[in-house]
Amino acid sequence: MSTVVLLTLTGLGLAALYFLVASGLALVFGLADVLNFAHGLFLSVGAYGTWWASGNLPGAGASGWGFVLAVIFGVVCGTVVAALVELVLIRPLYSRTIEQVLVTVGLSLAGVALLQASWGADPRTYPRPQWTQELTEVAGARVPNDRFLLIGAAVIVLAGLLAFLKFTRIGLVIRAGVEDRSMVTALGIDVRRAFTLVFAIGGAAAALAGALGGVYAGSISPTGGSSLLIFGFIVVVIGGMGSVVGAAYAAVAVGLLQQFVNYTSPGLGDICVVALLAIVLLIRPQGITGKVATS
């Protein structure tokens, strides 16, 4: 029983990371039709930003509020980079899919190279506040606290995103734009203005995933963003391109499946995730929810 609880909470922690990566990808793809292969860069920027700030930013540190400040710094960095990428590189290329793929793939490679040039290719030890390493007993299982941190962060981001989409005017425009963009423009709304915002929100969520993923893994490396991005894409496709809630369901399915299969047959978890993707594509090609931002 305690093993099941530990696997479940660890799987949900992983699901939280996947969701943080996938929610931004889903909104960007749903609204702007951009397959953003540079999304992993935002994650790396968040991770490295937090790591750098914990050692160098006045007031920031590796524990307590100092660490919170370091995470905020990392998230702000990821948000700013995402907004700049949209404004400078993506904006001139809307509706030119091939060029977008080339630019975002190129940017993700260049980002890795830049991080390597700045801080080396080897993994860096990541600051882990004491509390995250302590254990909490849940139904007989001793669970590391970082799982709760990840799950809590993802739940807050999910609730915040849904409230933003449901109760704000720009959220209304985004929901409509994800469903039918040309109709929104025909109603006199310049939907491209929302693109930068959606990129920035996605960048912030990915940067948070990077910052908290470092706590979970204990170290960060320049290529860490790309490997999480692959699972982010799988989650987006399973959830339904453009759906935040679908991404949440799919992230939970992928995280739990991966953990439980890896426990019983080590190494098979990733293969099972790809098999799940194939089954969903065969049975329900539109994903769990279809292309609808909030359902």
Partner: peptide, 16 residues
């Protein structure tokens, strides 16, 4: 041009 995720009231407040 009706949206599945928007209520009728939201349709009427969406356009400027």
């Amino acid at each position: 041009g009706a949206y599945a995720t928007l209520t009728v009231a939201e349709h009427l407040t969406l356009p400027p």
